[in-house]
């Protein structure tokens, strides 16, 4: 199974984090259903052109957080994560995305007030669009 994971070398976010986050989002959004077999670590390493060391790290974190489980000799499977957890993942990913854009703005030396204004403008344009 090929997973729709897109990695960016330009991002400041480490590769294993990108894999972890994107897999979580795919699971929380229901794109990958509970019980689905994930590619083997070596298989995903080939598809994403990433070492098994990095993939293993992402899989271990996801397993630790209860998103996936490894059955000895059978492979890695997506767990049934509760609705509450799904909600939490969604909220977290929204927070993280917004935080990242604020960090970008700050790296260009914008002040908090200027960033606030940018956000306000964007939100207003969305409101008008409705």
């Amino acid at each position: 199974m090929q997973l729709p994971i897109h990695l960016s070398n330009e991002s400041r976010e480490p590769i294993y984090h990108q894999i972890e986050h994107q897999l979580k989002a795919l699971i929380a959004s229901g794109h990958i259903q509970a019980g689905t077999a994930l590619p083997s670590i070596r298989g995903l390493a080939k598809d994403l052109e990433i070492s098994v060391i990095t993939i293993r790290r992402a899989y271990q974190n996801l397993e630790y957080q209860g998103f996936i489980e490894t059955k000895q000799g059978k492979g890695t499977f997506v767990c049934d994560i509760e609705d509450a957890l799904k909600q939490q993942v969604k909220i977290n990913s929204v927070y993280e995305t917004i935080e990242r854009s604020i960090e970008t703005a700050m790296s260009y030396n914008y002040t908090i007030e200027q960033i606030e204004e940018i956000f306000h403008n964007i939100l207003m344009s969305y409101k008008k669009g409705e």
């Binding site: 070398n9 480490p14 390493a45 990433i50 070492s51 098994v52 060391i53 990095t54």
Partner: peptide
Amino acid sequence: LSDYLFVLRNGEMIGNFEKEALTE
């Protein structure tokens, strides 16, 4: 395929690098 790149230049060992460590 590779997890590690063992790099040789004219017989000299340049190093054994984990792939992402190198690209990063």
